[in-house]
Design a protein around this nucleic acid. Sequence first.
DNA 1: CGTCGAGCCTGAAGGC
DNA 2: TGCCTTCAGGCTCGAC
Length: 276
Amino acid sequence: MPELPEVETIARELQDSSLIGASISHARFFWPKTLATGSEETFNQTVATQKLKSVSRRGKYIFLQLTTYALLIHLRMTGKLAIIPANTPIDPHERVRLYFSSQEALQFIDTRKFGRWYLHAKPEEQLGTLGIEPLSDEFTVSTLKNLLKKSSTRIKPFLLNQTKIAGIGNIYADEALWEAKIHPETPANKIAESKIKPLHKAIRNVLSQGIENMGTRLGSGRANYYSVRRKAANQDKLKVFRRDGLACPRCCTTIVREVIAQRSTHFCPVCQQLNA
DNA sequence: CGTCGAGCCTGAAGGC
DNA sequence: TGCCTTCAGGCTCGAC
């Protein structure tokens, strides 16, 4: 589900919530592997002394700053968070519930069980491998140019590589490449000089538009009927992602789907030429 | 360094 | 209706 815009939207919702300033009581892990650091017992010993100070985002991680620790949550494919009354019945797909002394709780629902929670005294050790934040002031055209020239990998997997640029996932990678008119299999260091500035702009455009629209919601049904996700509106703005067989909004050519680096990739074969 | 396949998991959707 | 296959917004590991 979540890429940078979705994670940012969720982090903002939590930051504006009644949980900020609240004391943590304890957690229950219904799927133990969700907790990637230590045991439930040590987790609970630690958080019992902590308050939630603030919530932000780094890459695709939700960063919960506690009094002296940090709780990092990665939603992976199907992770969802919601603030609920502490006595709400446990959902069949609920993997964690973090209880607060305010009688509220943070509920983590994750059908596929890929999501992970990390409790760290020094979260930078976990986050240190992440690349640059694409919406930060530090991410300039020349930063991007330097990253690209060091890599011969194809641009699609390059954009998905979190150690280079943090936060881009499959949706926004395809959308950015369409906007910049770049074929997804172009080697990063072979992208024409004239295309680097458009790519930089496209990455920032698609991500900030995603945030403005409170994220992209795909599919239908209960999987998305949750928390802030139901307000997501970016799915109606997508130009190529999961639009194979439909017309390119720019030139009307049929959009194609190909598997590149084991990820489904959507692009316009006319607008996005390999040698352009 | 780069690519590839498998693995982690479950459920929805499509073909027959 | 039921069975089987394919697919999924992410990431890691080991082999080559």
